Simulated scan of single mutants.
Amino acid sequence: MQYHYNQLLDFLNDDSFIRWALFGENESFWQSFLEQNAYQQVTVAQARQLIHKISAAEQTDLPTLDQQAVWSRIQVAMEDTPVEVNEPIVVQNWWQRSTWRWAASIALLIGISWFVWRNYDSHSVTYRDLVASVNDQQPLIERVNDGEKPLRISLEDGSAITLTKHSKISYPSHFTKDRRRVLLSGEAFFDIAKDPSRPFYVYANELVTKVLGTSFWVRAYEQDKQVLVNVRTGRVSVFKQPRVNVIDPETTGLVLEPNQQAVFSRQTENLTRRLVEQPLPLPTAEKAESVVRFDEVPVPTVLKAIEKRYGVDIIYNEDVLANCVITTKMGDESLYDKLDLICKVIGATYKEVDAQIVLESKGCQ
């Protein structure tokens, strides 16, 4: 691997370098790197010293900061401070400079929220972390459901939240002009009022759900290994919440439509899209006839009707199924019961791939 590093920040962003600085991993590689890049020795010494400072501070109970703003300020400061190639490797020299002292002190503050996140097993974002972060900017109201029945909460914008047992949510008394934001621990159903000028954000552990106006479930208990977002109506954007927003995190997320869910593994940090366990008819389809009869119609016609009813994409070869006809009726059966019936009649199979149904058949004679 080629390393074209010129700044302290380049090394601080390298997991391999961090593990070498702390644990001595890849010792031969980094010693070889220093021999081949002698002019980088000062920067390497600075980076190692800073990493050790962060490691020592990791147990400090610090509030979560606005990491993106802080990170931008650190980048500017480091770009303004050139590294002198001939400077001897004495850490005190750079540490005593005012710019470096300022940048390092900021780095220490974000140590718990950046270093631990990137390099240790404890990657979890807690409800307490989120509340502490937002409370610094805007006071929050907290509601807790200690009862047996769901608790309905009405927000100032007309949105409604149904909080399940043992769940809690925090939100401001007044939303800002550019966004609406709530913090969740547990499980809740959201029915969000449309407001294109102010997206609605639900922060739940490591996952962020962004909507303009729709309804969906979020399940994010702190002890659970997964965070789930289940869309009922509309469309939502779901993405991981990084400790440091170096890039726009939404660009690496998922867009969900009705009957789709996002599943985030808190252990592996994988975010995947699936169909919900029991897809429901879309609200518009619920008003249609409860029972639909098909008399000697091509199977693709039936599949298109199912797609329309559930909003689920069904992928198949229309030419292969052109000679397959079916006579049946469909009522309150589940989506999967309907598919099982069709597949049994024409000798086909199906599977779910990325929240879509892929139906495979050899056709009909």
Score class of each variant (00 low, 15 high):
195 D>T: 14
195 D>I: 09
196 P>S: 10
196 P>N: 12
197 S>P: 06
197 S>G: 07
197 S>H: 08
197 S>Y: 04
198 R>L: 11
198 R>C: 10
198 R>K: 15
198 R>V: 11
198 R>Y: 12
198 R>Q: 14
200 F>I: 03
201 Y>Q: 10
203 Y>P: 02
204 A>I: 04
206 E>W: 01
206 E>I: 00
209 T>C: 06
209 T>P: 04
209 T>F: 00
209 T>I: 08
210 K>Y: 12
210 K>A: 14
212 L>C: 03
212 L>D: 09
212 L>Y: 14
212 L>S: 13
213 G>C: 04
214 T>K: 04
214 T>N: 06
215 S>E: 10
216 F>Q: 08
216 F>A: 03
218 V>E: 04
220 A>F: 01
220 A>D: 03
220 A>Q: 07
221 Y>G: 02
221 Y>S: 05
221 Y>T: 02
222 E>M: 02
222 E>S: 12
222 E>G: 05
223 Q>I: 13
223 Q>E: 15
223 Q>D: 15
223 Q>T: 13
224 D>Q: 02
227 V>K: 12
228 L>V: 09
229 V>G: 06
229 V>S: 12
229 V>A: 11
230 N>V: 11
230 N>M: 10
230 N>R: 14
230 N>K: 13
231 V>Y: 08
232 R>C: 05
232 R>H: 12
232 R>Y: 10
232 R>S: 13
233 T>Y: 01
233 T>M: 05
234 G>V: 08
234 G>T: 08
234 G>H: 10
234 G>F: 08
235 R>Q: 15
235 R>T: 14
235 R>A: 10
236 V>W: 03
236 V>I: 09
237 S>C: 08
237 S>P: 00
237 S>I: 10
238 V>S: 05
238 V>L: 09
239 F>C: 11
239 F>N: 05
240 K>L: 08
240 K>Q: 11
240 K>Y: 03
241 Q>N: 13
242 P>R: 05
242 P>G: 09
243 R>Y: 02
243 R>E: 07
243 R>P: 00
243 R>L: 03
244 V>E: 01
244 V>Y: 01
244 V>N: 04
245 N>M: 14
245 N>P: 01
245 N>R: 13
